[in-house]
Amino acid sequence: MRSSVIVFPGSNCDRDIAVALKKMQFKNQMVWHKETVLPKSDLIVLPGGFSYGDYLRSGAIAGKSLIIEEVIKAAKAGCFILGICNGFQILTETGLLKGTLLRNKNLRFINKDVQIKVINNKTNFSNKYKKDQILKINIAHNEGNYFTDPSHLEELRKENLIIFKYCDVKGNIDESSNPNGSLENIAGILNSNKNILGMMPHPERMTDEMISNNDGINLFSSLLN
C-alpha cells in the first residue's frame, strides 16, 4: 500500500507516523504542503502537530494550503485519509469532516495516555480490532473537544460513523472518562463514505512495545487487510 504524509510548517508527528507506516510495510512518501501534485497514494495522512502555530484556529491555515485541493480530490475519489490530532482539526477546517474541535473543556493542554473504545470495528480503519475493545492510546492536544450540530450528531449515530469513544479502564463511557469535553465522548469519526477518519488520539505513538504499547498497530493493519 502506498501512503503519503503531508508535512506543514509546524507539523511535529510527521516522522513518527512515517516510522509507523514503514514498520507496517507501507511505501511512504513525505509531501511538503506547497506541492501541487500528490504521488499516487492509497492512504494520505495529515499528521499531528501545530501547523502554522495554530494561528487563527487550529488547522485553519493548513486547511487552505496548496496541497489540500489535491487531498480533497483524492478523498472524493475514495482514497483513504487519516487525520490525527492536528490532522483531524485540518480535516474539519477543509470540510472533509463535519463539526469542529473546540478548546478542551478544562482549558489545559492534555498530554496523557487514555482509554478509548472501538465502537465500530466494521470499517477499513478498524476491522482488525474487536468490537468494544479498549485501547490505551496517547492524546496530546489543546483543542480536542469535538462539537457538531444536532442533525450531524444524529447522522453520526445512525450511520455508525463514531469509530472511537473515550472510556475508562473498565470501558465506561461517561463524563469522568471524557478528557476534553467532546460531545458523547467522541474520540474519532468517519465521513459518510467511511474513507476518511479523523481522530484526536495518536495511534502512531502506540506501535512499539519498547516505548509504549502496540494498541495502534491494528489501525494500520486494518488498512492493509
Binding site: R57, K64, E93, G99, T100, F147
Partner: peptide, 9 residues
Amino acid sequence: KKLLVNLII
C-alpha cells in the same frame, strides 16, 4: 466565509 470565521461555531 472562506477563512476568518468558522461558521459552525
